[in-house]
Each structure stands twice: as C-alpha cells, then as structure tokens.
C-alpha cells in the first residue's frame, strides 16, 4: 500500500476551489515533485494533508490515507501525534518560519519533546546530532543562537533539522529554496536528497522550478489552477510532455532558450476566483485550444502505466496536439 494516498482531495475557500479533486499516491522512499505556477494549489494541497487549513477553508476528500491512518476521520489529538513526527513539512521562507523569540535549540528540542520525550540531556544530544546532520558547523554552540542571527540558508537547514527530528516517513518541502540564493539552493536540495536516501524517506518537493526536480524526482505531478493536469515518471515527462501546459513550462526554462532573444512564456495568468473559464481551465492560454476545449472539461485519464493526462488532445512525442 502506498505511504500516502490522496483521492479526490478538494480545498475550497467559499466559492473558490483552491484545490480541485486531486488524486495521487506517494510510495515509501519515493521522491515526488509537484510543479506549477504560483496559485496552482500546490502548497494548499499539502497544507490540507498536514491539517493546517484554517476556517474558512474547507477540506474534502474521498480518501486521505497516510501510513494506515485515515487523516479524514482522525481526531485532532491523534493527528498531532502524526504531524511533526511521521509527516513533517518545511516552508518557503525560512527567515520568518522560525520563532524569533526562541533559540534554535529550543525549537528543535521542542519537536523532540512533543513526540519522543526523553530527558533534557538526551534531547540536547539529539539536537546537536541533527544540526550536524544538516551541515551546520559548531552545532553545540549554535543551539543557543536566535533565528535572526542566522542567514537564510542556515535557517532553512535548521527548519530541515526540526522536520527530520522525529525521523519522518514523509517530508513535504514547500518551495524550500525559493527564498534563497542560487548557490544555496543547490546545497539545500542536495541535503534534502541525501537525507531522503539515508533514511529511505518519502519526499514531496513542491516547486515552480522544473529544473530543480528534473534530476531529483522519480515522479512528477503537474498542477494548474488547483487541478492535476499531468502525472508521469520524471524522465518521460521531460522528454515528451503530454499536456500543453507541461510543454509550456518546459519551454520557459532558460536551458531551452539558446539562440533566442526572449524566454518563451505562456501569456496570461492562472485563473482566480472570478475568471474561471468553462471547459478546460487552460483554454484561454493554450495555443492548441479548439471548440471542444472551451465547452467540455477533459478528464484525467491514463495513457500508459504511471502516466496520466488531463487533455482532449494530448501531445505527440514531436510536441504536436493529436486532433482526431
């Protein structure tokens, strides 16, 4: 059985569907990349799994299973025992994600205390080990440091230390490198992958940077406007995308833009609350859209094993739409 199984997960804020009936699975030890533009519901869907969506947000799902627990029906108290221990999350902006009033050591040891307990000395030793593990030099002294004394990269390392404090089975990294320097970005991703391999932990890597997940991820989930538009194995998806949106994302990578004056881009923005189109949500921006796209919503259907796409005219390996 999959470690995390999500079926028809939806998150609504009033009338607005931030996440629209998405389903996917994460296996033990698998690295899954979730990609998409800002506003495509990547973060919200993971927050929903963590149980961090507040009123007025409404979470519904046909199934939400994690490691044998049904997260839909679980009590708040039982959920807290899982969250932070078996499933952990790190966030986009490490500088504001740490509490400025408490030392780094306190914040790491708090996570250990809640889930594992142990004596103060044991927790301290574990915290030092964790800081060492995430590549922070002189860890024993860094325990007494406050977050404002750390750089962004260091803060993110501390966040990772907190997240892996209780040996989670699943780590969700929500744009872990977006707020960091390019040089640091690589280091953080490398660190995450190292930890993932060492403990055979499942890792969900949420990002809008396809290049980042290209090498790392086993499976890629492409999201647009709260929906999954394509799922596939990483190598396959990059070689021959089936969905026009995935194709557009790939074309906008600087690596594909040699000898061109400008970066390729998809005009327009992700539809918001008031401008959701009929039919396929991408149709106003899709270069291949025809009449059917404007009236009938395509369904996410399997093309081959591990390969699903939500498009009327999936692209051929040459990158052309397959009109009948």
């Amino acid at each position: 059985m999959a470690l995390l199984e999500v079926k028809e997960l939806a998150v609504q804020f009033g009338e607005f569907k931030a996440v629209d009936r998405i389903s996917y699975q994460v296996e033990q030890g698998q690295v899954v990349g979730i990609v998409g533009e800002s506003g495509s519901g990547k973060s919200v869907s993971s927050l929903a799994i963590m149980g961090l969506i507040d009123f007025p947000g409404k979470v519904t799902a046909n199934a939400l299973h994690f490691d044998g627990h049904d997260l839909k029906t679980i009590s708040e108290k039982a959920r807290r025992r899982i969250v932070g221990a078996d499933v952990a999350m790190i966030f986009q902006d490490p500088m504001t994600s740490l509490n400025p009033c408490f030392t780094v050591g306190y914040q790491i040891m708090e996570a250990i205390k809640i889930h594992h307990g142990g004596s103060k000395k044991q927790r301290r030793e574990r915290a030092i080990k964790l800081l060492n593990c995430v590549g922070i030099p002189d860890p024993a002294n860094r325990l007494n440091v406050y977050p404002h004394q750390l750089s962004g990269g260091m803060s993110q390392r501390v966040m990772i230390a907190i997240a892996i404090a209780c040996n989670p089975k699943l780590l969700i990294a929500d744009e872990p490198t977006t707020a960091l320097d390019v040089t640091i970005q690589g280091q953080i991703i490398e660190l995450l992958l190292d930890l993932q391999k060492k403990d055979n932990m499942a890792l969900v890597l949420i990002t809008h940077d396809l290049a980042l997940v290209a090498e790392a991820a086993h499976k890629i989930i492409v999201m647009y406007a709260g929906q999954i538009v394509e799922i596939g194995d990483a190598e396959v998806i990059f070689k021959s995308p089936l969905h026009p949106y995935t194709q557009a994302l790939l074309n906008s990578l600087p690596e594909f833009t040699q000898d061109k004056q400008r970066l390729a881009s998809l005009s327009g923005v992700v539809p918001g609350k008031y401008d959701r189109p009929h039919g396929c949500l991408l149709n106003p921006r899709c270069p291949y859209a025809d009449k059917q796209c404007k009236t009938v919503e395509p369904i996410l259907h399997a093309r081959s094993e591990n390969r699903q796409v939500k498009c009327h005219y999936p692209l051929s390996p040459e990158g052309n739409p397959s009109y009948e």
Partner: peptide
C-alpha cells in the same frame, strides 16, 4: 509563518497560543 511551523511540528493549540504567540 512561525505559528504555522509550530503547528506543523504537532504543538498543541494551547501551547501555540501561550508560548509561541504570546511571547
């Protein structure tokens, strides 16, 4: 954001309010 972090750690609601937020 750090309140969200605390919740993601599994800290109880009471502790979040009295320790993480109040300070």
């Amino acid at each position: 954001d750090y309140i969200r972090t605390a919740r993601a750690k599994g800290v109880s609601r009471w502790r979040i309010i009295m320790v993480h937020a109040l300070r």
